[in-house]
Design a protein around this nucleic acid. Sequence first.
DNA 1: CGGGGCCACTGATACGATTCAGTGCCGTTG
DNA 2: CAACGGCACTGAATCGTATCAGTGGCCCCG
Lengths: 328, 328
Amino acid sequence: MAKRRRVTSIDVAKEAGVSQTTVSYVLNNVPYQTIPAETRQRIYAAVEKLGYTPSAAARTLRLGRSDIVLLLIANMPLGATAIELIEHLTADLEQHGLSVITRIDSGRAVASLGKSLTPAAVVSFAPVSEEHRADLRSAGVYVVDVWGDNDDGPNVMARGQFRIGRMQADHLVSQGHTRLGYAAPADHRLGPFLDPRLEGVRRGCAEHGFTSPSVRQVALETAAAADAAHAWRAEGVTAVCAFNDEVAIALLAGIRATGLSAPGDLAVIGVDDIPLGQFAEPPLTTINQHMDAIAAELTDAVLDGLRSPNSRRAVPLESATLVIRHSA
Amino acid sequence: MAKRRRVTSIDVAKEAGVSQTTVSYVLNNVPYQTIPAETRQRIYAAVEKLGYTPSAAARTLRLGRSDIVLLLIANMPLGATAIELIEHLTADLEQHGLSVITRIDSGRAVASLGKSLTPAAVVSFAPVSEEHRADLRSAGVYVVDVWGDNDDGPNVMARGQFRIGRMQADHLVSQGHTRLGYAAPADHRLGPFLDPRLEGVRRGCAEHGFTSPSVRQVALETAAAADAAHAWRAEGVTAVCAFNDEVAIALLAGIRATGLSAPGDLAVIGVDDIPLGQFAEPPLTTINQHMDAIAAELTDAVLDGLRSPNSRRAVPLESATLVIRHSA
DNA sequence: CGGGGCCACTGATACGATTCAGTGCCGTTG
DNA sequence: CAACGGCACTGAATCGTATCAGTGGCCCCG
């Protein structure tokens, strides 16, 4: 079979009996170009007939930037919550003509993909080094700093995660607990999420005048979780904020294994509201993050950044809800 | 601040005192071009000094294809298993100079992204319509058909999922069960995974001379799961293959809620070996899929396809293991 | 009836890389 | 010493799109 060439806008132009320029004007809806409806129709018909799709490569080369938004996610365990965020973000940005592309990676990709693809923006869920950030900037790529430890762009994530921790602590305190524990995940790659959440819990304790939470790692294994439960009991902790629902469920299993019970001996609250939380023993109390709201916030941040790279805004949305079941 | 232009290979050429052609030859290691080490060093030095990164757009435009592999994932609930697969695949293909980009989407993207990005290959975890497939083919994009219902490319996934179902059935039969149930997820988007797994269970039953499994949907909700457990008991089912660990854990909660117990009254086996399985009551017996092996298989498929678009191969790897805990 | 302005287009160029087809120089060989 | 071949390069075309700078025709107004 003959190797068919790609269908280009020139082919469309020939088919419609106009110049390539006109085709481009019509397809891009260029303003101040007066092109009658009849001609437009001919062009659309030709596009349809030939199955024309513009070449992103050529378009990007010409414009100096693509309409791709690169979503960088560090090589860390992603839960259903993260997937949900990706889905929302993809859908939201698509509405504005931007294609979200996700890259799950160890971080080396920031530089290479970021500069070679010339995306319109990079949204990174892993901290971006100052050097890479400057590099991307100078290449005309807008970088949305999700963590916001440098005051560049909106620190959507960091603020949100802090609030989550704060909500956990507030709930436990409202139940009468005064001595809290914090169950950290064993996986150190989760640090960027852990730090602000834990900080939120600390702040909560401090503002209520209680001592700082006792932090322990809880590995996803019954024996380790049992040890932690035992240790917390020994130091008078009566309630634990878990980093997420996985850790919380592991801890609940550890509590059962020690012969204790939740929430009587040790109350537990998670984060994420994963479906399996309701099947835990006892059903898990947790915090539900509204991923649609967070995605909307991120979308706004990206769009704003593309409009004026130096603007800065804070869109404080109420983006989490307490889900009370039985564990706390 | 002055808007710095992108650093191009011409800038590198000027800096190194050679022509742009030479720069290209050196950076691409073009064979049969004799370029002395000293010149190469000058060019590398210039690249380093200017911070040059080649433009993917220009490269793609010229070559007619990029070195991107588009991983399309249907808009379905992705578990940790899927993430693991993505990670492995990304790492494996990167070793061969291919950049994996993941797109989580409702399927409309196949056409637009596939044709506009001109990726080297598309690996789709959602069924690709015959029309889109042909479209991509003619655009020179190699399509790895993960499902393989049409005999185009290796049906890596379909075969693997079938084997999984088969393993579940075989284990239950080996434990003396003769009347099996199948717990399907409520989310119909999981169909592409459900069908081959269920088929594997059916085949297993048939070959042992037992009647086909009794299929019931189990929603992620205790009451619904309890109803299902009750109904299975009523028809004499003694063991259930669950679509995955989530469904299995829901079912276990349903069994407890009915006052029954696993595995005595109803044995349950899952799929995925998610960490939370060990914290279920009782700890979940399941099938562990070796994502590294599956990723390796897919990588081979892609590389083979890129070498000779018409080759077809089957790489049967042993890619799953039975994990026996207490639920079956 | 001359000219200004709008309409409906088109020609040519640039974006940044790859690659074919040379080119000049030097050393070797018959 | 002329011819040849290899070395170390370079010039120019090309990929497909967007856009600047025109261009010819027609209508309308003074």
